[in-house]
Design a protein around this nucleic acid. Structure first.
Lengths: 341, 341
DNA sequence: CCGCGAGGCTGAATCGGTTCAACGCGGACC
DNA sequence: GGTCCGCGTTGAACCGATTCAGCCTCGCGG
């Protein structure tokens, strides 16, 4: 009595068998109405709550799905998470949100936990492609990659074309007359950072030497790292350009958090944005528009990314014979004050 | 064989009984080394992963704890979540993060799910004090309130003194010479909003008519609502003060998201911050400092709030006879450019 | 009057770890 | 030689919901 009444006590109280209670819970249309009402009444009176472990044990799989992200503090990921949640909730699934902080060890331990929980599937923006993802899949748990393309033979994935995004940003700056661009981002091991840089590089290369692009590497993709980068940029303003100094005319940041940090540091140093230096960010998080110098940014369809990823996962769990798909979204440049002439 | 090997297959392969395998998993010090190694080898070879449902079913409770927040997109809550996660992980617990979007129905459905999962405990910033929280507790699941004080006889809670926070903000503005203050926040049913307003009101009242404070109610606590409020403030600038128009000399926002929205709208309308209007926010999220007009804000110890809440929860699950505690943190005013003269 | 089918319900088997009483065995001690 | 102890291991009972073969009842057609 203390603690949790079980299905047997409910059955006893309603004067039926446990099988009938289970039917009321799961397939009420099979049970005659008066019986059903008696069972509902008993459940109510006892305050019965189904024990999900027992259910799962019998059924074999859970009603949850795991979402593993690099950084919950980044609004980009919380927006993706919202998209995932929407789709999952519509199908009666719960989402377990795991945060890796870009740390492979945390990623590993979260994946182990999700495996033990026998989640229906995992959505992940992987750092480390260690064997765990393959192992999960080997045990029959579908894994969908998001914000990163995978091998179409073995997995579904949803991504945004980061090379194109980089190109859009750089093109915009070049067309606005900027000739010295600085790319700020890191760590360079992250594919997103690499590809955005690559896109920008291709535009610069096409200008045949008329435009130059330097790279300032950061250790993380957050506001603090952006501030540090901004301080270095401001410090270089005093030095002659022969000395590697001089302000760039534009800064392209690998994400908005960095851009906001850079913006703050530059403003603080008395450098005007966009008059002295233009800034372009990436992701178009809500705070980009909310900055007092609204940020030009490359918009990714964040919620849709999440929704689509979840849909692919559900398709994989339900379809009889599944063909892996790759979905690639196109980013879009949103021009605001930080890069207007 | 397909899918998931179980503990019996491991036992068979290692040539021991299932009991021994379980001991290796849970209390390896009881098992002789050579046996242990054979079991580990078998686990490795088969790719065995413990089925957590079965474990939970037997043991009675899970190794997870639920965290229910109003809005994952608000950095305040992700910071709290990080604090909770730190503490939980140290004790080998996982955190399930649930988002209510300030919607009582979503809150209810998440609580139902957590109940079915038999989580070790729940940390919640409740909207609706419907019976579910009491019911959970009745079934033996500890529930700790955070960012809100509860009844010390029945529950633990961790909060920050919001009345004091409101007072600090208003005091700062009054001392800086502001005489017409506008409080922006809502919905007023949220206790946090109420208390911050109340604190500010008390300061205004103490000024014996020298200072006035109006209230502009918002429908939510996010950037978009802040922008809308900012637009209304800017629109009133043109009207005479007899008409209820005229700019306030300072705006105090119930949280930083609102403040950022207001800041953006005012700047966009050509109103200078802080020269024309000063702004004070609340929470001191990272973006507050990162705004191009860095925001004066009332800082809450966000991570510590999370850590402490988790510790209280753990204490309640472990202590033989538990006495509920209320922990109240003091907020701190961080003065930045948005309110400097 | 009998047979048959459908609807409604029963209850035992099942899922896979955990736990614990009990057992075997070798060494120490009297 | 007998007894006792403790370490290492065993294996069956158990947790609680689900499932399904099978039972009963009732109504209808032959």
């Amino acid at each position: 009595m203390a603690g949790a009444p079980n299905i047997r006590e409910v059955a006893l109280r309603a004067g039926v068998s446990v099988g009938t209670v289970s039917n009321v819970l799961n397939r009420p249309e099979l049970v005659a109405e008066p019986t059903r009402d008696r069972v509902y009444a008993a459940i109510e009176e006892l305050g019965f709550v189904r024990n999900d472990s027992a259910r799962q044990l019998r059924v074999g799989r859970s009603r949850t799905l795991g979402l593993v992200v690099l950084d919950v503090a980044n609004p980009f990921f919380t927006d993706v998470a919202r998209g995932v949640e929407d789709t999952a909730n519509q199908h009666g699934l719960a989402v377990i949100l795991c945060n890796t902080d870009e740390d492979p060890r945390k990623e590993a331990s979260h994946l182990d936990l999700l495996a033990e929980m026998r989640v229906q599937g995992v959505l992940i923006n992987p750092i480390d492609t260690d064997g765990r993802i393959a192992a999960l899949r080997g045990r029959g748990t579908p894994v969908v990659l998001f914000d990163r393309l995978g091998d179409p033979d073995i997995e579904c994935s949803v991504a945004v074309d980061d090379v194109l995004g980089g190109r859009l940003a750089a093109q915009h700056l070049v067309e606005a007359g900027h000739r010295t661009i600085l790319f700020v981002g890191g760590p360079l091991t992250l594919r997103q950072v690499q590809e955005r840089r690559e896109g920008a590089s291709s535009v610069v290369a096409a200008a045949n030497g008329a435009v130059t692009m330097d790279v300032l590497t950061t250790t993380a993709l957050n506001v603090a790292a952006g501030r540090a980068a901004g301080d270095r940029i401001a410090a270089s303003a005093g030095r002659s350009s022969a000395d590697g100094g001089g302000l760039p005319s534009a800064v392209f940041c690998a994400n908005d958090l960095l851009a906001l940090g850079v913006l703050q540091a530059l403003t603080h140093a008395g450098i005007r944005v966009p008059a002295d230096v233009a800034i372009v960010g990436y992701d178009d998080i809500d705070f980009a528009a909310a900055a007092a110098v609204p940020l030009t940014s490359v918009r990714q369809p964040r919620q849709q990314l999440g929704r689509t990823a979840a849909e692919l996962l559900l398709a994989e769990t339900m379809e009889e014979q599944h063909r892996h798909r790759q979905v690639v979204f196109q980013p879009e440049l949103i021009v605001r004050d930080s890069s207007s002439t």
